[in-house]
Amino acid sequence: MNTIQPDHNGTNLRIGIVQARFSNEIGSAMLKVCTGKLIQLGVHTDDITVATVPGALEVPLVLQNMAASRQYDALIAIGAVIRGETYHFELVANESGAGITRVGLDYNIPIANAILTTENDAQARARIEEKAADAAVVAVECANLTNLLLQDQFEDEV
Rank of each mutant, 00 (worst) to 15 (best):
D134A: 10
E95I: 13
S28V: 05
T117H: 05
E25G: 09
Q5Y: 05
E90I: 09
I128M: 10
E130R: 14
I100A: 04
A114V: 09
I15A: 01
R14K: 15
A93I: 13
I17Q: 02
M1H: 13
S69M: 07
E25S: 13
G104D: 11
L149E: 13
A93D: 10
A136D: 09
D152N: 14
I82C: 12
L61Q: 07
I100Q: 02
D156Y: 05
A93C: 15
V158Y: 04
Q71N: 08
I109A: 04
Q5N: 07
G104H: 11
A143W: 02
H8F: 12
A135R: 12
G36H: 03
A139W: 03
R14E: 04
I100P: 00
G79A: 14
S96R: 06
I109H: 04
G55E: 04
F22V: 04
R127G: 06
L61T: 05
C142N: 14
Q153V: 13
K37F: 04
D152V: 15
A136S: 11
V50N: 09
D156I: 12
T86P: 04
I4C: 04
N108A: 11
K37Y: 05
L61I: 07
G16R: 00
P6Y: 00
A122I: 13
S28Q: 14
T101I: 11
L13Y: 02
M66T: 00
V18N: 01
S28W: 05
M1F: 08
V140P: 10
N65L: 15
I26D: 11
V103T: 00
A143H: 03
N24A: 15
G10E: 03
A56P: 00
P110D: 09
G10W: 02
V140I: 12
V103Q: 00
A132V: 11
A135T: 09
P110I: 02
L145Q: 03
V59S: 03
T35I: 12
V81Y: 08
L75K: 02
T35P: 08
E95S: 13
D7L: 09
H8M: 11
L13A: 05
E129G: 08
Y72T: 01
A68L: 14
V158N: 08
L63Y: 00
L148P: 02
N24Q: 15
A114D: 06
V43M: 06
G10K: 06
G99K: 05
T86G: 09
M30G: 10
A68S: 13
Q40D: 15
V140K: 07
D7S: 14
T3L: 14
I17E: 01
A124L: 12
L149F: 03
Y107W: 10
A126H: 11
V50W: 05
E155T: 15
E25A: 13
A74W: 01
L38S: 07
Q5K: 09
N144C: 09
N12K: 14
T146K: 12
M66S: 06
R125N: 12
R102T: 14
S69K: 05
Q40Y: 08
A80C: 13
